[in-house]
């Protein structure tokens, strides 16, 4: 005897089974389902196609879809694992997983390193470091003379570049973060531990019965 009610839920193009995503990330199945509620909201803000476009990402971060920001651009590009210009649900969950309080610190450092490797050469070069400092100063309307910026970049670079080859590699970056853990403070979002409380509606749309 079948049930008279069958729930038909329409999923977005990049939708992935929450059980699989939960097995590959620090999230539980319920948390992945709650993230789907967030994803639906973000991905329908401008174009309702179930994908997060860069303008929607900027809108969510800055309440302004046109606002440009070097670091938001880099984060979007890293979330867009397939490099097709949009963030799919699976990419969203896998990338946010790095920001989970329980994610390995090494993953957080590697993500930050890739973020800072603007030219994606596998190294952070001095020019990239200066470019990022200047971008932050522009963003925050802080005025520092070029001499001061040069001095800050020089000091950081000489501390990090322990091999003295003019570039910061991943090992050097890891060592520096170990000495200054606050450098990756933004790589942890405590909020992710409470995601099911923020989006309780996931219960009504859940496909997986949770036994966690």
């Amino acid at each position: 005897m079948g049930c008279c009610y069958s729930k038909k839920v329409i999923r977005t193009p990049g939708y992935k089974d929450p059980t699989i995503l939960a097995s590959e990330t620090p999230f539980t199945v319920s948390e992945v389902e709650a993230l789907y509620e967030l994803f639906k909201k973000l991905s329908s803000a401008i174009i309702n196609d179930g994908l997060i476009h860069k303008e929607e990402f900027q809108l969510a971060l800055f309440r302004n879809s046109k606002r440009k920001n070097l670091f938001a651009d880099r984060i979007f590009d890293l979330f867009d694992i397939k490099r097709n210009g949009v963030i799919e649900f699976g990419e969203f969950v896998r990338s946010l997983g790095v920001f989970h309080p329980n994610a390995p610190v090494e993953d957080k450092i590697k993500f930050a390193y890739r973020l800072y490797d603007l030219k994606q050469t596998g190294f952070i070069e001095r020019a990239e470091l200066k470019e990022m400092v200047l971008a932050l100063l522009r963003e925050s309307d802080i005025v520092l003379s070029d001499d001061v910026v040069e001095a800050i970049v020089d000091k950081t670079f000489s501390e990090a570049d322990t091999k003295g080859d003019g570039k910061i590699d991943l090992d050097e970056f890891m060592d520096m973060v170990k000495n200054h853990p606050m450098l990756i403070k933004n790589m942890t979002l405590p909020y992710l531990k409470d995601i099911t409380l923020a989006f309780p509606s996931f219960i009504f749309n859940a496909e997986v019965e949770n036994i966690e």
């Binding site: 920001n69 800072y116 800050i152 200054h180």
Partner: peptide
């Protein structure tokens, strides 16, 4: 200058993903 360039960068608003979770 006792400032770390990476520390300065980490204060970017573009790096603060907590805004994704705020009610719009």
């Amino acid at each position: 200058y006792n400032l770390n360039a990476f520390d300065i960068i980490s204060y970017s608003e573009g790096f603060d993903l907590s805004a994704l979770f705020e009610e719009k």
